[in-house]
């Protein structure tokens, strides 16, 4: 579903934020992407969803290059950033309807899916309020719902559990598993290693812009905990 080939991103001044990254996320995968602050996780994620421009390498979603046909790639992808800055001047329902319009979701589907997910995240009663009145967690829930209503084939999340209450975090994990069992793929970054260990069937660890380990979760962590492996890999220069 997602193929990253020789992806390199240099920032102004020539410093490489990510260097020659190769990764494949298949259908049904829940792929955890972990690394310390500034390792290159968000840069990679932003390039995958077509927000960040890049020169070297290629990223394909369902066989289509994001460079060649970005609109087609984005139509299959949903993205939730680490800090969901949503339109404060819209109400929750106006925002969801706006996203449904951009993704050409049918009237019946959008009504059904908005109800389904906003009930699940217990936010339906707040949908008529301005987003400016929402707490961080409510904005996060709204961003998640907006990502789910167009039934994405690839769901890309950057630190999705930050700001969610325990019930909402549990709900999100359940939905992630449900999505993958239906053939979608999930690629997400997290600092919560326990969650990654339990939820992901595959893990990639990035350090200084380069992948230092990746593969099936059991293979990456072996007999140790993911936390131990992560700390060992990060501390070893």
């Amino acid at each position: 579903m997602l193929t990253i080939t020789h992806f390199t991103k240099s920032y102004k001044g020539g410093k490489k934020a990510v260097n020659d990254l190769n990764l494949v996320v298949g259908r049904g995968d829940i792929y955890g992407f972990i690394g310390h602050n500034g390792a290159g996780k968000t840069t990679t994620i932003r390039a995958v969803v077509g927000v960040l421009d890049f020169e070297e390498g290629d990223i394909e979603i369902d066989g289509v290059s994001i460079k060649k046909d970005p609109v087609a790639c984005k139509a299959k992808t949903a993205y939730i950033p680490d800090n969901p800055d949503l339109y404060d001047h819209l109400t929750g329902i106006q925002y969801l309807n706006f996203i449904a319009d951009l993704f050409s979701v049918s009237k019946a589907d959008r009504e059904r899916l908005i109800k389904k997910y906003s009930d699940a995240f217990q936010i339906t009663a707040n949908l008529g309020d301005m987003i400016s009145s929402y707490s961080h967690g409510m904005k996060q829930k709204l961003a998640i719902i907006s990502a789910l209503i167009h039934k994405p084939k690839l769901l890309v999340l950057d630190e999705p559990f930050v700001g969610l209450d325990p019930k909402a975090a549990h709900m999100l994990k359940t939905i992630m598993v449900e999505l993958c069992s239906n053939g979608s793929a999930i690629f997400f970054s997290t600092h919560v290693l326990d969650v990654a260990e339990k939820l992901c069937n595959k893990i990639a660890i990035i350090k200084g812009g380069q992948l230092i380990a990746h593969g099936r979760t059991e293979e990456v962590k072996g007999k140790n905990s993911l936390e131990d492996v992560f700390l060992e890999l990060i501390d070893n220069d």
Binding site: G92, I93, V105, K107, E111, I114, G128, D129, M130
Partner: peptide
């Protein structure tokens, strides 16, 4: 401060083209 009534009930939604949205 935005006024939050928290009393929204799902209503039929209007679909628009991406440009109109």
């Amino acid at each position: 401060t935005s006024h939050a009534s928290s009393k929204y009930i799902m209503k039929p939604l209007e679909a628009s083209s991406p440009f109109r949205a």
